[in-house]
Design a protein around this nucleic acid. Structure first.
Lengths: 343, 343
DNA sequence: GTGAAAGCGCTAACAC
DNA sequence: GTGTTAGCGCTTTCAC
């Protein structure tokens, strides 16, 4: 049997082959094989005979043909900026699981934060008759919405919101407020009574996510330590080198001391800050309460404590699917609360 | 124009629509639109008119229909154990780039190191008429080979070898030997002259990759520090908790000292070791030269030096494609040398 | 230079 | 209960 269907040329078995072998019509075979025989009242014996033969022949339906016929593909897509990243990796993992749970076949593509690549990829997906698509961290979500709308394909923005489709993002303001509170909570009594400040490093203030975080930071700081001075905020870039320089400068400005607290915006900025912290004594670092808005397990291996904020990839994806399945595709923005992780 | 093709129902434009609009036959439109008009000698004017109309209508070919007709799909697949992992993330990233460079559309699926899931996924891919597939870290590569062979689909094993298809894996013996040499290189002169040993922690000795690494470790150790005693090797599990316990036990056994060198097999085992190391003084840790067979950038943030081994995802994928494209699909095993990273 | 027609493998009326 | 038939949208001989 293996010989029959071995090597390249060996045409894959079709329902016609099966129907010939069994002596039933292709439509009967089709009905049995795709479960639609609930409606047709096929004789159990016929059915089991067909199933048996299909099994024996190693039959599997040609999904392209089926898709063409029913004009659906069973595919659902997601784009992410890149795969080499903890968060997006978690997103892919959750996306796959949820898509499969719905009987859809998930296909994920990375688009490197390049709008052109995003468009190319989405067009490609549409050409494969994809049934729905998630845009995670898209740089130009609205352009993609236009594309999908034209093809009548449902879609949802994730992590970064758009204005032409429903979006589900992390609640950055809430997360930043909680993180700031937690940082204050880790400051000593003495520091809290003295004039103590937390400094904010990293990110780009013009980006929505950073500005939301700054808002949350300000609110909690105001509440626990008093008003925030603009000099406490240094959100000019995500670059680790710049973050390193920022930390160093801050240290000098404070006369060779760390601030009472540090709010680092993203693991990537944190990398830079860590490079600077490595040059200090442990005792000195311990007097600064450190938080990072983003999560990576490496923090658990550091020799000083850190509080991190972890986005809920599971909930983001779950909500994205829920929005996808709603009748009304209005461009609302849903916010998911992240969680604090203490190391 | 947007109104024309808006919302769900709006049938996507086909070559028939185009042919009607222009007054040319579907076959002419098809030829122009898929580039096969080099053979047919179509009038440039007709061609440009068709192109213009297609553009205006936002036409894009139905890839399912094309695939059905030419019985190819333009899809190439890869399975990986999971996405939430540095190495596999890098593999996906490289796979995508290389697949696109070849005009193929990459689809990646995670199978969670579950043989059943691996089979399900590969069957699914075959049903979509996938043109080739890479098995990365598959737990039962040979079963997948059988599946693909039956369908006449080319495939290559990556990272973990199989016996029924070409494989490309990291050169674990070579890497372990280099890592061991590097660890010895970081030991002090005094240690090297004294009776000093390196201990190997983590992994499962029965697995091919671990046993290869042990072989490399033994060879370099033999050469630089003398023969390895079996008590220096503790490769019973990848579990971080077990690795932590191993490190602790070793420390006690050595009378409250770390060995001169530590070879930790995998980042996951390293996590456990780190948990133990955190309980020690920095001075003490500094007297032990530490290497980890695997790579994660978090090592750069530790307050003591570590040598890591990084697998070359780029080369693994490049070679996998090369093997895929060779006429002869013999079950050879190609080894790619990893690189050492010093922190 | 271009058109007509067949058919990839499947499904879904509609027959009987 | 099962068979016949007409396409899904595309490519590709083969005619002219």
């Amino acid at each position: 049997m293996e010989a029959e269907m071995s090597e390249g040329g060996g045409r894959k078995t079709t329902i016609y082959d099966l129907s010939r072998v069994i002596g039933a019509s292709p439509s009967t075979v089709s009905a049995v094989l795709n479960g639609s025989w609930a409606r047709r009242r096929i004789k159990p014996e016929t059915a089991s005979e067909i199933l048996k033969a299909a099994e024996a022949a190693g039959y599997s339906a040609n999904l392209q043909a089926r898709g063409l016929r029913v004009s659906r593909s069973g595919l659902i897509g997601m784009i992410v900026p890149l795969h080499e990243n903890r968060f997006f990796g978690a997103m892919s993992q959750n996306f796959e699981a949820q898509a499969r749970a719905r009987g859809l076949y998930p296909i994920t593509a990375s688009t490197l934060r390049d709008p052109t690549e995003e468009e190319r990829t989405v067009r490609q997906m549409l050409a494969y008759n994809i049934e729905a698509v998630l845009f995670t961290g898209a740089t130009d979500p609205d352009a993609l919405s236009t594309l999908c709308r034209a093809a009548g394909v449902r879609h949802v923005n994730v992590d970064l919101p758009g204005t032409k489709a429903p979006s589900v993002i992390s609640d950055n303001t809430w997360g930043a407020e909680r993180l700031t509170e937690a940082i204050i909570g880790r400051m000593s009594q003495a520091q809290r009574r003295a004039v103590a400040h937390i400094h904010f490093i990293g990110g780009v203030a013009a980006d929505r996510s950073t500005s939301d975080r700054i808002a949350g930071f300000r609110r909690a700081h105001q509440h626990g330590l008093g008003a925030v001075d603009d000099s406490q905020i240094d959100a000019a870039s995500y670059d680790p080198d710049i973050a390193e320089a920022s930390a160093r400068t801050l240290y000098r400005k404070l006369g060779g001391h760390l601030p009472a607290g540090l709010f680092v915006n993203s693991t990537i900025a944190f990398e830079g800050v860590l490079r600077f912290l490595k040059t200090l004594e442990l005792g000195e670092i311990s007097r600064c309460a450190i938080g990072c808005y983003d999560w990576d397990p490496f923090a658990s291996f550091l020799h000083f404590p850190v509080i991190m904020v972890r986005q809920r990839a599971d909930q983001l994806i779950a909500e994205a699917f829920r929005l996808l399945e709603m009748e009304q595709q209005s461009p609302q923005v849903l916010q998911i609360r992240p969680e604090l992780v203490f190391y």
